[in-house]
């Protein structure tokens, strides 16, 4: 059991988490936050291993990881 949570208001849509995820379960959505950035989201938390690769590569410390 693992999951990730995105603090969306902080996301800048840079997609570095998308590239980092070995399970390829993150994508940049077509929803934008207050700053006007399209935010990243996880498509299927059930596939998440909690490896934290996404959080480690996120420059804006958007992602919390639980395992």
């Amino acid at each position: 059991m693992a999951k990730v949570e995105f603090k969306e208001a902080l996301c800048k849509g840079c997609a570095l988490c998308v590239i980092a995820c070995p399970k390829k379960i993150i994508s940049v959505s077509d929803r934008s936050n207050e700053k006007g950035y399209f935010v990243a989201e996880v498509n299927d938390n059930s596939l998440c291993t909690g490896c934290a690769a996404c959080a480690t590569m996120c420059p804006d410390v958007v992602i919390d990881v639980y395992r």
């Binding site: 208001a9 420059p59 919390d64 990881v65 639980y66 395992r67």
Partner: peptide, 20 residues
């Protein structure tokens, strides 16, 4: 479940102004 990745306590809650 335990939180295994969270923001360091040595960082404030202020969002970085850096470019994407």
């Amino acid at each position: 479940m335990q939180q295994v990745f969270k923001k360091s306590s040595l960082l404030t809650d202020t969002p970085f102004h850096y470019c994407p």
